[in-house]
Each structure stands twice: as structure tokens, then as C-alpha cells.
Nucleic acid binder design. Structure first.
Lengths: 342, 342
DNA sequence: ATTAGCACTCCTCTTAGTTGAGTGCTAACA
DNA sequence: TGTTAGCACTCAACTAAGAGGAGTGCTAAT
């Protein structure tokens, strides 16, 4: 167990390093207001904290730097949550000033504001479209052999896909098909559409609509490979500001990772509520070994979730980011739970 | 006028510098197969070429580097177009292997392949949606006070926007509204919708559908602010490979520019056909003073255009990029002009 | 238990010297 | 007269050596 004085010193070191990005020495700590003991004492405690694995040295005679374990301890035990100032709150509120209630618009704006306020990179996951339910299915023919299938969901999201029509497909065939699909699919969630189609609808369709199986199959697969949650970024190049990312290779790896949808999505595991912090190598991706990722979720309507991530150096201002994310999460949830239909 | 020998030397220098990114000296040139004269002669010619403004020195005793004027001359007079090899052609063809005819899918794939083949950054502008014409207009109500307006265009593109319904708006009101809108709007291009609505449709609507003007106006403005052409990127971080972009600030400026839609769109001026090359400061943006931008256009259907841009260092492999863009332009145009409806 | 004092470490910055690629100029040559 | 060999000169890039300074660990005094 750490003594009170050790806690105080560890906190001071982490705070200082987060602020100045320089190894911190005993003298510098001793000059702080809240520290009452001499550099020599601090040096002794530092040596102990290093032995315990909370601190590291960059070389034999340098100041100390928090280790990952140090950050982890700091985050778990020393992070007395602090309010954010009213200017920040005002900025966040400004997202909702516009009358437009378009979900996408709000999320995009949130991503920008978050990156601005934190000076890190923000990633926002839009609602998980897969859990929307079909409100209406329609098909608009474009020419004799192509048409657009459109699904409107209960939340106002629109999915559309072009597909080929079988030869000699008549308007009445089309009408029958749309009717059957609407009868059977309204209320089904997008993730279940495929199953439902295969299990029930396909046979009904084949009975009532003359057309090659192939084409119906094409339609089925078209509805199946639906897009995942949309991803919005803010401040992609903010990390250029951080001294730890003055190395081109690191920046590049992270930027590349952010272009890869699957990688980005794996940042958001686990999807539980609350605020999650992953520090350095706690991230699975080794591109992120110098980064910390703070994630949280917000709700859209009853059972849908979006997610927020902030990516910064391990030397991230955890206190501030956590406070901001907390406000953000609640505000978004609030904004999205009124005015939703079913 | 340049002598034959000067042309030969200028070409050799530009080619060499494009290849190795190192100031090129007289000795190195003299060793080339096609060069038959001694380093001393070459030095004399180099001095002349420098006086004429085609070459520069990085310092008094360094080798020569092409100036912007040098590149411009090279591009205008020394760029004997060369075919690309069959492996490249195969790669480009692979874009069209998939059966899917989805425009967006093809363009996205093209962006990736282009950046891979050139090792520069590619930007593709999708078709200019504004010039599509309305095929069908529909409204799907979500709840008592919200609905989604959907426009399907002749090319299968789908625009959608949520909007608020007036209180006490009935299903029959809605039906009337949709009918009127379809009657009047089908065949109108998206860019003209707003005008058309204001000029003709609004008054008709007000006669037949009881509802506050406000709401119809909201719908009008919703249809108005339509998205511009979609932008697709390939190899955003490719420039990290180029030695001239080992400077964080330069990279950052360019990446930031690419996040700004208006800036990106201004890269594509002028919109004429053919292949356009802008070298260094010929670009209006000063973020691009170390870059060259090569642009071209491709057609989609009859009167629609998309555009392609490749961004690289001024020391770009112009020959290869021009050749690749030429093939790309023709292939895309070809792919998009069959199977389009009206 | 705390702290002042001191020797020691090692990074960082500066300076000086060395190397080598490349130039411009002159004089010789075909 | 155009071409080329030879040579002195320039300057970036690298290396080595030394000075300065921030910070440590240890010891001994308080």
C-alpha cells in the first residue's frame, strides 16, 4: 500500500508530466504549493515508487516519467473528477443550438467540438443502424433492367442499393414484390432482414412473382451487406501537436489505423456503459502502444447506442477528457431521446 | 531556344531527380547511356540552364535541382507519353471485375488503386449529384410530427432528409402533397428543385394542402441544401513516403487541407476535359507550394462529370501519373456510360 | 525521519576538424 | 571553336572532444 506522501508525490509527478511533457525532477516537485518536503525526501520516495513500477527513468540521471502502471494507478485512484468550466459547457451546448435535428449533423458537430476542446483526436460512432427496424420498403425502377431498393427505418435512416431486374419483369410483378416485402419486413430489424428473407419471404415471393431465383437472391444479398455504423472524425491531425508524435512513423501508423474501419471499430470494445480508459499497451493494436483511448457510449432512443472515443498520447489529460466525455455523453443522450418515433 | 544538347541534359536531370530525389551532379549525368559528352561540358550547359531559370542549386557547390520553370518545361515539352505496363493495366481492370455496378463502389475502389499504383494521394470526385434529375419523390412518415423526404434520381442516387410535420397533418394531406410534388418535380434536376418549388409548386401546395407555410418552407430549404459531389480519398498517408514531406508541418498542412471540402473542390478548377497539371505555386493554395496536382475528368452518362486528382511532390513522376490517369479516365467513362438509364 | 551536501552520470549544446561531392575556371587539345 | 582534363575552391554532412547543467544516489549531519 502506498503511503499518503507517496500518493501525493505520484500525483504531482503525473500531473506535471501531463502538463509539460518533460521528465520531472525532485526540485521541480518540491517547488509546488502542496508539497512541503525537501527534494532529498522526494528523491527517496521517487526511488521507492520506481521500484514499485509506477515511475520510470529515461536514463540514469534523468527525472522521472510515469510508467503505464503509474498512469493506470493515477486513473484508478487519483482522478478526483473535476468540473469543467462554463466556457467548455457553452461550447458543447452550441452543438444543439441549431434547430436541425438531423442525427448525423449533430454527431459530426460533436466530433469537431470534442477534438477542439481536448486538442486530441475524436471518433464518434453513429447509431448502430443494424438495430433499426424497417418502417417501409420500396423499389423505384430506373430502367427496364435496373432499380433502386430503399429501406426507411423507424429512426428515419435510409438505406438504398441498386440492383438488376430480371428480364421481362413487369410493373405488376414489381408491385406484388414490394407489397409482399412490406407485409413481411416492416418491424424487422435490419440485422434480421437477411434471416427473415431466407426463412419466410423467399418462398412466398417465388410463389407470387415469376422471376429467376438468381435475381431475388441478388436482392437478398444486397440487403444483407449493410453498412455498419457510420464513423465521424474530429481533429485527425491534432496529434501533430503532441511532442510524443513528432515522429512521422508513429503518426502515420495511427492515421493509417484510422482509415481502416475494422480497426477503428475494435477500439470500441467493450461496449458497456460508463467511461473506459485503455492506456498504452492495454490497447490490442500495437500501433496504439503510445496512445491512450478513452471511450464511452451514448444512447439514441430506447435501445440504440452510439460511441465516442478520444485518442491521445498516454500522457493525456485524463481528468479533463473524462469530464468532457461525461458531459458529452449525457447531452447527446438527452438530445437523442426526445423526439424519437417508433 | 534551347539546343538539342540542353534539352537532353535537362531531361536527364529532371528524370534523375524524380527518381532519386537528390541534387544531380555532372558526373552522374555523364554516366548515363544516352549522354556522350564529358562532365565538364555538362557543367557548362548546366550553368546556362540555371541562368535561363530551369535549374537551381541548393547551395553553391551542390548538384542541380529542377526549378518550377524546369518542371513546367519538362511537362510541356519533354513528356513523351509512355505506355504503362500490363500489370498496371490489369490492376486497373480489376476495379471492374466485380459484378456490382454501384457507382460509389467503383469510385472508391478506383481511388485506392490509383494511390497504390502511383504511391501518391488520390482524390476522386463522384458525379455531380446536382445535375441528376428527379425520378421519384416520396415521403415516409415516422411519427405524428416527423417524416423523411426521399428523392430518387434518374441515376439511382438517393437523397433523403428528415423534416417536421405541421401539427394535425393527416395521411391524406401527405398523400396530396406527395402527388403534387411528383407531378411537378419529376424530371427536374436537383439544382433546379429549389427554384421550381418556389416558383410554381409552393402556391399549388398551399391551395391543396392545409398547413402552416413555415413547414412547407422548411421542406423547401431541406431539399435545397443538398450535398455536393461526394469526395473519395486514396492513400492519404502516402506522402509520408516522400522525402520532401519528412517535415511534419508540411504534411499537416496538406492533410488539413484535405479535410476541408471547399479547399479540395478548388483543386479541381478548371473543369475542362483533358489532363491538367499544376506545379508548386501554380496552385492557388500556399499549403500546396511543394506539391503538384494532376487532374482530369471522366464522364458519367451523357452530361455528368466526375473528376480525379493526384497529389504528389513537385518531384512527381509526371510521365507515369499522366499515363495512368489517361487509362483511368477512359475506363471509368466507359464503365459509366453503358447501363445508365434516363 | 528528514535534509543539506557532494560526487557522479549522462544528455545536450557548441566548436573544430575532416571528408567528399560537386562546382567554376583555366588551359590544353582536336 | 567547341570540348575536355585538371585543379582550386565551396559547403553540407559527419565525427570527436569538451563544457554546461539538470538530476540522481549516497552519506552524514540535524
Amino acid at each position: 500500500m502506498l503511503t499518503n506522501r507517496q500518493l501525493q508525490i505520484l500525483q504531482a509527478i503525473v500531473d506535471d508530466f501531463i502538463m509539460f511533457a518533460q521528465p520531472v525532477g525532485s526540485r521541480q516537485i518540491s517547488k509546488k504549493q502542496e508539497i512541503t518536503f525537501s527534494p532529498a525526501t522526494i528523491r527517496n520516495e521517487m526511488a521507492d515508487l520506481e521500484e514499485l513500477g509506477f515511475l520510470e527513468k529515461t536514463h540514469t540521471s534523468s527525472g522521472r516519467v510515469p510508467s503505464e502502471k503509474g498512469y493506470r494507478f493515477y486513473v484508478d485512484h487519483l482522478l478526483n473528477p473535476q468540473g469543467i468550466n462554463s466556457r467548455d459547457i457553452q461550447q458543447i451546448q452550441s452543438i444543439f443550438n441549431d434547430r436541425l435535428v438531423e442525427v448525423e449533423h449533430i454527431i459530426r458537430k460533436s466530433a469537431n467540438i470534442l477534438s477542439e476542446l481536448t486538442s486530441y483526436t475524436s471518433i464518434l460512432l453513429g447509431p448502430d443502424v443494424q438495430r433499426h427496424r424497417v418502417k417501409r420498403f420500396s423499389i423505384v425502377p430506373l430502367s427496364s433492367d435496373t432499380a433502386v431498393a430503399i429501406i426507411v427505418t423507424n429512426n428515419g435512416h435510409v438505406e438504398n442499393r441498386m440492383f438488376s431486374l430480371p428480364p421481362n419483369f413487369t410493373a405488376s410483378d414489381l408491385e406484388k414484390m414490394v407489397n409482399i416485402l412490406n407485409e413481411r419486413l416492416v418491424g424487422v430489424s435490419l440485422e434480421d432482414i437477411h434471416k427473415k428473407l431466407e426463412a419466410e419471404v423467399l418462398t412466398v415471393l417465388q410463389q407470387h412473382v415469376r422471376s429467376a431465383d438468381d435475381y431475388i437472391h441478388a436482392l437478398v444479398t444486397a440487403t444483407m451487406h449493410n453498412s455498419e455504423s457510420k464513423i465521424f472524425y474530429g481533429g485527425k491531425t491534432n496529434m501533430f501537436n503532441q511532442p510524443e508524435f513528432h515522429d512521422l512513423n508513429k503518426v502515420r501508423m495511427i492515421l493509417d489505423l484510422m482509415e481502416t474501419t475494422s480497426q477503428v471499430q475494435s477500439l470500441f470494445q467493450p461496449n458497456e456503459s460508463g467511461i473506459h480508459i485503455r492506456i498504452g499497451s492495454e490497447n490490442k493494436q500495437l500501433e496504439m502502444e503510445n496512445c491512450s483511448v478513452i471511450t464511452t457510449t451514448y444512447s439514441i432512443g430506447e435501445d440504440q447506442q452510439g460511441a465516442i472515443a478520444i485518442i491521445g498520447p498516454t500522457r493525456m489529460d485524463y481528468k479533463r477528457v473524462v469530464a468532457l466525455l461525461d458531459v458529452m455523453r449525457m447531452d447527446l443522450t438527452q438530445a437523442f431521446t426526445k423526439n424519437r418515433s417508433d
